[in-house]
Design a protein around this nucleic acid. Structure first.
Lengths: 185, 185
DNA sequence: AGAAACATGTAATCGGTTACATGATTAT
DNA sequence: ATAATCATGTAACCGATTACATGTTTCT
């Protein structure tokens, strides 16, 4: 229940005032910390809705030539609404991974492609770890540090498991042979 | 791109013929292995679409009193389409966690509630590990075993990190005190 | 007797993405 | 010169969920 775009905006605004554009950048920059994504197409309407409901206030600053900057800040009601979310129960975690879905059918993937996919995933995870480590000093609260290191720990575990067990998928097949047909139930 | 309901149905059907109802059950039962969820409202239309596109065939078996069982099986075209998905690139992983989002703002959560949330998350993860371990023998391919043990490894890492670092969030606050106000940017 | 599992399907709704529309400023 | 960043917003679309609609059989 907690993780809709509006609620996340409330959370971000609890860290300080921001424009829609800045909020979008935080969604991107801290993506490993927050595990959420959102586009302008959802952020701007969400902010408008929050304003209509009195949870945020808008102060307009003239952008020179650019569209005016609309700086949002939490109202007392908005602060209260967010506090209440924090007192509730989080919804279930969801991990969606095309990569893992494909590995489920590893025997249908040609050996070379399979190895490439695993190599790329490891590189991707290493990149995330570097990114998190590099951004760590930016963390302003224990919560932010905790979540960052939690994300890193999970990435490290994933890499370790891939390295230690990839042979179980790879050694079955002669290097570049097409996957053999599987029996049907 | 790979992870829409239709593609997952194709994958499940590559393991053997099944009805929509059975596919739904697999989505639920093997949820830790597949990391995907889908409801009847998306499965039945997806199956109809696949049939229209000639990727699956339907054979109807009279259900006695119940609606007829419609048993789907992959056609040659469907097998080929799925093989092609397996040759492609997986989309990015997405991990969405209300729990981690809340921890980001741990300083807004009363100490007792915070501890309860962490305890519950650990219990939840332990449950998943048990579930995976228990279902392991059902795995029919190396891919299924690999993905199951990968999921387990990640859950174990998450528990370890929570246990080893929860004090960083908890010790800041005197047990049941309300979270102190935070400075704004 | 009552609940759970079996079995399929449709309609309303929803949250979100992508593309569109616009245009100045700053860094390379 | 050209690309990237700044800056806001709308409209079309999409995939999926939830609730609805229906009804039998089997387990407890």
């Amino acid at each position: 229940m907690a993780l809709d775009v509006g609620t996340v905006c409330l959370g971000i605004l609890s860290l300080g005032d921001a424009t829609g554009y800045e909020i979008k950048k935080m969604f991107e920059d801290d993506k490993m910390q927050i595990f959420v994504e959102a586009s302008f197409g959802s952020i701007y309407p969400a902010l408008a809705r929050l304003a209509k409901d009195g949870l945020v206030e808008v102060r307009t600053e003239s952008g020179n030539g650019r569209p005016d900057r609309k700086i949002y800040s939490l109202t007392a009601a908005g602060k209260k609404a967010f506090d209440e979310v924090m007192l509730g129960q989080p919804g279930p975690d969801r991990f969606r991974s095309d990569f893992l879905f494909m590995l489920l059918f590893a025997d249908l993937i040609p050996g070379a492609h399979l190895s490439a996919l695993i190599d790329e995933k490891i590189a991707d995870l290493e990149g995330r770890i570097d990114y998190i480590t590099q951004r760590m000093p930016d963390a302003k609260t224990p919560g932010q540090r905790f979540v960052a290191s939690h994300g890193r720990a999970i990435c490290e575990a994933a890499i370790r498991h891939l390295r230690d067990n990839r042979h179980l998928l790879e050694e079955t097949l002669p290097a570049d042979a097409p996957a053999p047909a599987r029996k049907r139930a």
